[in-house]
Amino acid sequence: MEFWKDETEPIKAFLALFENAKKDPELSEGLKKVNQLIWFDYSEDGPNCSFHVDCRNGEIKVGVGKPEDQPDLTMSLSADDAHRSWSNKLNPVMAITRKKIRVKGSATGLLKLAPKLKRVASIYGDTLREMGWENKIIA
């Protein structure tokens, strides 16, 4: 991995990102509109390298690993590409076309989030700073 020391680091960063996103009114509204259970699967970088976001029923819950319920959408990619993606440095359409991101299920909800990627990136930058991981921020 280019950005992470081990498989626990990315999950820590991404869970913190979503905890911060929940506090942001614009993003939390955007996430609620997605209205899906999403599994972000980075297990190609380690068996425990994954987390899920449940934004169904007007709530946003974040947890480590694969969700108990069947996910509406599974996105499988490397933890490095996930880092690029949350930093808004990875064109999601291009990444899907080139099979860097493999998607299972309906991506319709995710399209609602696409216009908010800039906002996500800015919160992600703040999150990494809070965690003392400025060095991981992609310029």
Partner: peptide
Amino acid sequence: SVTLGVMRENGTAANLEGGVH
């Protein structure tokens, strides 16, 4: 296909919102 699935669900205007941004 994921992208064509999106079009099936919401038509050719599926990404109009993204296009505006």
